[in-house]
Design a protein around this nucleic acid. Sequence first.
DNA 1: ATGGTCGCGGTGCGA
Length: 267
Amino acid sequence: MKLRIATWNINSVRLRAPQVVKFLQEEAPDVLCLQEIKCENDAFPTATFRKAGYEHMAVNGQKGYHGVAIVSRRPITNVDRRGFCGKSDSRHISAVLGAVPGQPVLHNFYVPAGGDEPDPERNDKFAHKLDFLDEMTEWFAASAGKGSQILVGDLNIAPFESDVWSHKQLLKVVSHTPVEVERLARVRGSLDWVDVMRAHTPEPEKLFTWWSYRAKDWRASNRGRRLDHIWVTPDLAGSAEDMRVIEAARSWERPSDHAPVIADFRF
DNA sequence: ATGGTCGCGGTGCGA
């Protein structure tokens, strides 16, 4: 069977519900994982997405900040919402893809951005980002041998040189500093996760999913970063047949600063 | 080297 999974930091799902519907209609993912929905669970536009043919939804929202959701046209089961670092932040939701062979667990993450100062001693938000990544590492390591898993979301780190417009100019900019890149590599090592985006588009080809709102012309300056990711456990590596960043969505009316990413699987 | 823009909620905070 085929399965199309998409991930998109939507930066307010209420404001951009029409863009989400357009994306669902044009790209027809089976499952869409959203981050930064920025609303509480009962404010999620459930009816709007159900009308578009997506009847299965799981939401982990909070007021004003963060928030993640899974929108699916296939049944999902075993929904789980994990709190990290002893906080009540809504940064994770997972579900089992019940109709998919092997019933893989799909995790949707919104990793803390980490503030501006890349020093955990002086910046609590950066310390939190590193702690969050370490907890991910421990948690996934403990799940070894318990079945197939897929991890998507805004990890707020661009790990490779070709994941940023200028490696040299971003070495001290949070999202691309060596300390957080190393921490993310440890998360990747927890289950020997396969980076589906880079498996499909190897270095040194540039690959971005986010462009700042502050550029006058995001496409002309193209100062992007690859902050959004799709990972799979090694047993699923051969199942990922295609990957695309839908850059066009960054130019839709009132866009998110992130573009959606799609991976096509055949199980 | 600096400042540039968004969304939420109704003030700055987070990104």
